[in-house]
C-alpha cells in the first residue's frame, strides 16, 4: 500500500477542549478512505485539520504532524495556498460560488495565475467530465450555478476541486444534503476518481462506507479506534467499540 498522508500523533483543540486525541495512521494513496464515527466525535475536525481550514478559528490549535511528500503540512511555514492546491475539499452542503458554472470551475486555476483561455476551457471541460456533470451542463456553461439542483451543485463542487489537479480530495459528508439518486451518482464518481486520487470521505452512513470505501477509519470521542481495510473492519472488527458502532448501538 502506497501512503499519501501520514498522520502522526495528531491532536487538535478548540480552546481548552481536546477534539482529536493522538491520532496516528497512514492514509493510502489512490484509494477511498472513509472516516466514520458517531456525531460530534471529530470527523469534520479531522479532515478540516488536514487542509488547515480550521486555521481560521482563533482558538484552534494542533499538535503532531501530517506528512505529505515528506513535509509537515501543519508547519507554520507550509504555504496554505499550495497546500490547498494539493489537497482539495468538498463540503457537506454544496457551496458553489454565485457565478456561472464555467467561472466556478475555472476559479481555482484563475487565482493561481492561469489565464490562457484554451487551458482554462480544456480544464473546465475535463473536470466537469470527471465529475460526471458535463453532459448535463455542456450547452449552458454560463448558467448561474445556483440554478442547478443540489446533486448537480455538489458534482460541480467536485469538478471545481478537481480543476486545480489536487492529489488528495477531502469530502465532508458530501451526500448528506442530497437525494438518494444524486448520492448514487456521486458515489460512482468517487469510485472512478479513486483510480487517480487519494480520497478521504467523512460519512455518517455505514452503508455508504461499505459501498465505496477501500479503507475505513473509525473515530470515537476524538480517538482513532480502528483503521484497516474496509471488508475487515466491516466483517470482523477487532475492537468492541467498532462492533457496537457498526451494529447501531450509537445511532
Amino acid at each position: 500500500m502506497e501512503v499519501s498522508l501520514k498522520i502522526e500523533n495528531l491532536s487538535a483543540y478548540f480552546g481548552e477542549k481536546k477534539i482529536l486525541d493522538s491520532i496516528t495512521f497512514d492514509i493510502p494513496s489512490k484509494a477511498i478512505t472513509a472516516i466514520v464515527g458517531p456525531s460530534g466525535c471529530g470527523k469534520s475536525t479531522f479532515v478540516r485539520t488536514i487542509n488547515r481550514m480550521n486555521d481560521r478559528f482563533e482558538n484552534f490549535r494542533t499538535s503532531g504532524r501530517i506528512i505529505l511528500d515528506g513535509e509537515d503540512v501543519l508547519s507554520k511555514n507550509y504555504p496554505l495556498e499550495s497546500l490547498r492546491m494539493r489537497i482539495g475539499m468538498v463540503f457537506q452542503r454544496p457551496n458553489p460560488f454565485p457565478k456561472s458554472i464555467y467561472e466556478n470551475v475555472a476559479f481555482g486555476l484563475k487565482i493561481h495565475g492561469i489565464k490562457d483561455k484554451k487551458t482554462l476551457d480544456e480544464s473546465v471541460r475535463s473536470s466537469l467530465k470527471a465529475a460526471a456533470i458535463y453532459e448535463q451542463v455542456k450547452d449552458n456553461l454560463s448558467l448561474n450555478a445556483y440554478k442547478l439542483s443540489g446533486g448537480q451543485q455538489q458534482r460541480l463542487c467536485i469538478a471545481r476541486a478537481l480543476a486545480v489537479k489536487p492529489e488528495v480530495i477531502l469530502l465532508d459528508e458530501p451526500t448528506s444534503a442530497i437525494d438518494p439518486i444524486a448520492t448514487k451518482q456521486i458515489e460512482d464518481v468517487l469510485e472512478k476518481l479513486s483510480e487517480d486520487y487519494t480520497i478521504v470521505i467523512v460519512t455518517h452512513n455505514i452503508q455508504q462506507a461499505a459501498r465505496i470505501a477501500d479503507y475505513i477509519a473509525f473515530i470515537y470521542l476524538g480517538k482513532l479506534v480502528e483503521f484497516g481495510k474496509a471488508e475487515e473492519i466491516l466483517t470482523s472488527p477487532k475492537e468492541k467499540l467498532t462492533n457496537d458502532y457498526l451494529t447501531g448501538v450509537y445511532s
Binding site: L80, E81, P96, F107, G108, I111, H112, R160
Partner: peptide, 9 residues
C-alpha cells in the same frame, strides 16, 4: 470556505 479550500487568499 469554498474559495479558501481552493487556495484563495
Amino acid at each position: 470556505e469554498g474559495a479558501f479550500a481552493l487556495g484563495a487568499k
